[in-house]
Design a protein around this nucleic acid. Structure first.
Length: 491
RNA sequence: GCCCCCAUCGUCUAGUGGACUAGGACGCGGCCCUUUCAAGGCCACGACCGGGGUUCGAAUCCCCGUGGGGGCACCA
């Protein structure tokens, strides 16, 4: 297998989202699968849109997901720099090469003129396109205007005749009539390149073998292959991924959908996922399967994905986000974690709630709550009472089904008697006498254990009762039951 | 408007001309287990967008519709 060099090349303009993360994931998997390298490159050539902190968020997001890159802006590498604003000379040089070889030309048209041309074209119901004014300028005239200090851009000279055939690995040949194509700006008046030039130059310079990117680039794909060919470079394998659709499947993700997701304790942004209780293993597994056709055994670690990954089995069709499926993969991977690992990840959720966590207790409750967690923060609902001094059960919760407060108080009292007669409350010793009591009293287990559950844990839903009491400890249990009796008798 | 891409259960997908009575997963429904909630086990429901071709044979190939998505910037 030929080692692939792949790259994730986001622009630092906003939050790292699921779509970007999945693109990074596939690029990562391909590199690891083939024993190649995965690179992070920051495409920050639009100074106006670059957002402070965005680059760091991308880096943090990739780290959190475990998509470690071999070369990048913060770690360097032999093809650096990896931030495009630090490579402007390289692009200027390549733009000049293109002008010299007749594949590009300086353009002096102002934004105002361009806007007007576009407006007129639309009024005439023509397709908006550059009208070619500067394409026919002579070398001398252009040189003269440049020397005079006129500001200019460089446009790529697209062929007017014939067709461009570009090959996408997932879709096959994409044929575009050249007359549909436009002379795009590749170097801006500020001297920085547009994506079209910068990405092509960097992918070549950085020896990228597979360009894995979103399908939003399909429209400018012919331009890109024309640029690469104008330089006489070997083309990389082009892999255009599909987009993510909103959960309804109708349309792409929008701000509105993002708000809905948050309301639902989910998010499109990687930075939010950790705080929401999602673990990278689950997120990665979930993302991987949207756009990658795996027949069966779809619960995988990243290493297993690397093992099974093939760029051929990626799918070109758009996929709707399904957060229920994320929940499933998250819960599944939580259950796969070792007790120690899970304990370490859970601890912050408890301490954040000002609960004092001792590691011994924490380790003991893991087996009790593990299979009940969909997200890590669910540990609060199932385990807070283990770390609390007292619980405050609601009076009405203490009344068992079909009984009244007085009867329930009797049951609590009797339970106290039985349990206080034991030297210690653990699962093995406490359950048999309590079961015997249920038998002889003619009550059902639901009623008796229900009262005990609410009394000792403070809640109607909890991990298994006797196992929980064992962790809570004899003294605390008895005290809590006594408290419950008091509450019931006050009713 | 023009150009490009996509199309299998509600969702993610398997399927590359005969092994398809179209497989798996999520979700949904039911049952079992059970002290609650889960987890687990079993079962059920559920799809080839439509129309034309090609072929002995089409989910699979071609064409046309339809639907969805993307693009048409000195943004990426």
């Amino acid at each position: 297998m030929i080692p692939a060099r792949t790259r994730f090349a986001p622009s630092p303009t906003g939050h790292l989202h699921l779509g970007g993360a999945r693109t990074a994931l596939y690029a990562y998997l391909l590199a690891r699968k083939t024993g190649g390298q995965f690179i992070l490159r920051i495409e920050d050539t639009d100074m106006k849109r670059t957002a402070p902190g965005a680059e760091q968020e991308i880096i943090d997001g990739l780290r959190w997901l475990g998509l470690n890159y071999d070369e990048g802006p913060d770690i360097g590498g032999k093809f650096g720099p990896y931030r495009q604003t630090e490579r402007r000379e390289i692009y200027a040089h390549h733009a000049r090469l293109l002008v010299d070889s007749g594949h590009a030309y300086p353009c002096f048209c102002t934004t105002e003129r361009l806007d007007k041309v576009r407006q007129d074209q639309m009024k005439r119901k023509e397709n908006p396109h550059y009208d070619g004014t500067c394409r026919i300028l002579s070398h001398d005239e252009a040189a003269k205007r440049i020397a005079a200090g006129e500001s200019y851009t460089i446009r790529f000279k697209m062929p007017h005749d014939g067709a461009t055939v570009a090959h996408d690995h997932l879709r096959g040949d994409i044929v575009t009539e050249n007359k549909q194509l436009n002379d795009q700006v590749i170097l801006k008046t500020d001297g920085l390149p547009t994506y079209h030039l910068a990405a092509m130059v960097d992918d070549h310079e950085m020896q990228i073998t597979h360009v894995v990117r979103g399908s939003e680039w399909l429209g400018t794909f012919p331009l890109h292959v024309n640029i690469v060919r104008a330089f006489g470079w070997e083309e990389p394998t082009w892999v255009h991924l599909s987009v993510f659709l909103k959960p309804s499947g109708k349309g792409k993700l929008s701000k509105r959908d993002s708000a809905d997701a948050i309301k639902d304790d989910h998010s499109f942004y990687i930075k939010d996922l950790d705080g929401l209780g999602f673990i990278p293993e689950g997120v990665i597994n979930w993302m991987a399967l949207m756009g990658w056709g795996v027949a069966e055994d779809d619960v995988m670690t990243t290493d297993q994905m690397v093992d099974r990954f093939s760029v051929d089995s990626l799918t070109p069709s758009p996929a709707a986000i399904n957060f229920q499926r994320l929940d499933h993969f998250n819960a599944t991977h939580i259950r796969l974690l070792t007790t120690e690992d899970l304990a370490a990840r859970l601890k912050p959720y408890f301490t954040r709630q000002a609960l004092e966590v001792d590691n011994d207790t924490l380790l003991k409750i893991i087996p009790l709550i593990r299979e009940r967690l969909t997200t890590l923060d669910d540990c609060l609902a199932f385990g807070s009472f283990f770390f609390m001094e007292d619980v405050n059960p609601a009076a009405e919760d203490l009344i068992a089904k079909g009984l009244d407060a007085k009867q329930s108080a009797e049951i609590a009292k009797k339970s106290y008697e039985i349990l206080s007669g034991l030297s210690g409350i653990d699962h093995a010793t406490a359950e048999p006498p309590m079961r015997a009591y249920v038998e002889e009293s003619g009550l059902n287990a639901n009623q008796v254990f229900g009262i005990l559950r609410v009394a000792t844990t403070g809640q109607k839903v909890s991990p298994p009762l006797f196992e929980s009491m064992e962790v809570i400890g004899r003294e605390k249990c008895l005290q809590r039951i006594k408290n419950a009796v008091a509450i019931l008798e006050k009713m």
